[in-house]
Design a protein around this nucleic acid. Sequence first.
DNA 1: AGATCGCGATGTAACGTTAAAGTCGCTGAC
DNA 2: GTCAGCGACTTTAACGTTACATCGCGATCT
Lengths: 340, 340
Amino acid sequence: MVTMQDVARASGVSVMTVSNVINGRNVSPETRGRVLEAIDTLGYRVNLAARNLRKGRTGTIGLAVPEVDSPYFAQLAARIITHAEAAGFRVAIEQTGLSREKELTTLAQSRNYQYDGVILSVVGLGKEDAALLQVDFPAVILGERIFDGPLDHLAMANVEGARAATEHLLGAGRRRIAMIAEVEAEPDSGVASLRFHGYRDALLGAGIAVDPDLVVAPRNVTMPAGRDAVRELLDRGHDIDAVFCLTDTLAIGAMRGLADAGLRVPDDVMVIGFDDIIEARFTIPSLSTVDPGHDFMARTAVEMLIERIERKGTAGPPREVISPARVVARESTRPAADRA
Amino acid sequence: MVTMQDVARASGVSVMTVSNVINGRNVSPETRGRVLEAIDTLGYRVNLAARNLRKGRTGTIGLAVPEVDSPYFAQLAARIITHAEAAGFRVAIEQTGLSREKELTTLAQSRNYQYDGVILSVVGLGKEDAALLQVDFPAVILGERIFDGPLDHLAMANVEGARAATEHLLGAGRRRIAMIAEVEAEPDSGVASLRFHGYRDALLGAGIAVDPDLVVAPRNVTMPAGRDAVRELLDRGHDIDAVFCLTDTLAIGAMRGLADAGLRVPDDVMVIGFDDIIEARFTIPSLSTVDPGHDFMARTAVEMLIERIERKGTAGPPREVISPARVVARESTRPAADRA
DNA sequence: AGATCGCGATGTAACGTTAAAGTCGCTGAC
DNA sequence: GTCAGCGACTTTAACGTTACATCGCGATCT
């Protein structure tokens, strides 16, 4: 391995001068030239482990997600990696597998100095775990369930996004609007409750009462669950003209369920999802959805984290940022007039 | 920061003994107990930067994929992370964005990014770049284009898998079997050519000539491209009874295209893909496909890499491993007899 | 009895970098 | 003529860990 020593010897200066050249500090042009040349011919590369030890940094941030192979998280990870890379950080991914324990240990182990900071995408932790998040370590929480926690928190505009989605359906003249989501007993804690809130607000705003019979719980958040939820909805004998789905995955399943029942999307029943995963652009018909500001979230999460890291600690009060959501209208909610 | 020094002082032993306790070396039970207790009360954590500097290791391996947000690569990454984690390594992901340059720089930069090794999933590099891969650094190449390179190489059984897929269709009594794939001019270099090879072999084996008109090139490897490829196939006026698609993504699009044309899958036209992405289980009908031994690949890639790392260098000749492929029969190729 | 061994424990010297505190010679202000 | 100030460079001392050599001591072998 070529070290600064070797470069220093080869160019007749001290190691410190080599360090200065590399870190762009005051060095005369001639010296800098000689050093750079030596670096080039010897093929010197700085040893990050040594630099990290000395500087107390690793240049790596941890990203904990439930699983990288679900579209939503894969796409989130891709964006975060891109932003972090631009800021000079590498991203190591940990999978927490939807488990509360793994989420906690990931956070706890992170200070193990392997990461400069962590972005933790939370699904298992709840408000009651806020105390456990009390770590003196740069961290940003992505998720919906924890408010007033001790760490920076970045959430989606769930209520507003859901309201806008529902209003979009209302604006297209639909009135019998179903929702596929498991609304939890404990109010306002999970994503589902928040989005249901927006759905309800929109309906009430249009003078329509929420019919509990039009809200159906899928058994999980997969495509088949979405399809089956639609079947149940239809079996109940209701004459629906639109469905708002908790996520795009459910929505894609729901569209299939509607097709199975001989209903056309959007003519008979409009469908809208939430998340704006890439797949939503590729379904036929393409799926209208709510973009939860993916890019804003990825960028902001990385920025917030890096700011904490730069300040060497968790100095400053925890911040709460809400990413703006926006309806993306595609074919699955296109009014008849628009189609030739 | 709590260091070994602190622990040593607190338990009345030398730093070296603390190190020995942590690394599970010969220490008497009593001493070990005292040290562990001190570690516990002080909340000591080993500093990986220091350990890495000393050991010349980082415990992190790099995984370079074109993009994490495409299902195939996301699922590959998830598996590799799982296996690496089990072996005590973290995985940092880099996105090469389908570019040959980024693939090369990732490999070149790896040793100063302080990865212990890299798994490089290659799409842009070709045989002609083999010389550029001449690095003295633990690396494993995943991909189809590079043979006889200087690095360990792990490939899929493309020809065999494609042959088996086609034979599966033949076995179900189909004879007019189309293929959706862009077969390159230069033979046998890319995935498409290799899979076409298998398709041709199977047909010839059954005494059927390859009809070039039944092989259609999609404009890329997305769902819409698959749908349009099917349309073109049908527009050509052929009476096909099965389609073998280069990838599952194309196959999912193809199924949609067939549905648009009023053809039933599998009754009128059977469809089979390649890759066994998770989505294939969730389409309706579920998609038959070829499992390219994802789990074998992930496990083997990690094992091969770790072995190189353990041997401290690239000692030993490059190895070439082919992952076995296996047809996964689902609804999209189910014979009529099986369905009630 | 003396040599040898093994075990537990220790002391020392790095690993390659950078922060901090000099050193040295030169310029320019008073 | 003196000296503060500055730029360019060097010296020194870590950062926290582990490899290696060594040491004391009781047990085992010849």
